[in-house]
């Protein structure tokens, strides 16, 4: 069994893993990082989105062995000195969630979106979130939340987790 060394939310883990173990199952079942859920089998829903070296990936479509030597950030590692990330704040303020199941992935994808494009138009936000499905909100308040976070982040010093 291959041995991997992964940094997840600022903590380094070393584990032997079966090659077929999905990153999301490694996070959930081995590390107890259950904040990242699974919603599909086919890379469509994006509920399992995490950041790998700062870029969004769908953790159900990456093997745990492929995360070896990489740095993973999940929804559980977003707080900065205990404070919510502006994107988390914005989803709350703008009612960008209902059941909340897509929310971790949606927030991670939104952070990635702003990293690429700090001042997106509504259309760019919608396109940037194409890989994340939500069944509750109709997306309108998610778009509003991302816009609001973009505004907030451009007016603050906050950048990224590390």
């Amino acid at each position: 069994m291959p041995r991997i060394k992964v940094e997840v939310d600022g903590v380094t883990y070393e584990d032997d893993v079966e090659p077929r173990l999905l990153l999301v199952h490694y996070l959930r079942d081995r590390l107890g990082k259950v904040g990242t859920p699974v919603g599909c089998d086919t890379t469509n829903c994006g509920a399992c989105t995490v950041l790998m070296d700062g870029m969004s990936v769908k953790s159900c479509s990456v093997l745990a062995v492929q995360a070896d030597t990489h740095d993973i950030t999940t929804i559980e590692g977003l707080r900065i000195n205990g404070a919510l990330h502006p994107m988390q704040e914005a989803f709350h303020s703008e009612h960008g969630l209902q059941c909340g199941y897509c929310t971790p992935g949606m927030i991670m994808a939104s952070i990635d979106l702003l990293r690429e494009n700090p001042d997106p138009s509504d259309e760019e936000i919608r396109e940037g979130l194409e890989g994340n499905l939500c069944r509750c909100t109709g997306y309108q308040n998610i778009v509003r939340a991302v816009r609001s976070a973009a505004h907030e982040m451009s007016h603050s010093e906050v950048t990224s987790h590390d």
Binding site: G46, V57, E116, E130
Partner: peptide, 9 residues
């Protein structure tokens, strides 16, 4: 092609 997260990989 697909979406940003898929395009990263």
């Amino acid at each position: 092609v697909a979406d940003p997260a898929v395009r990263h990989r």
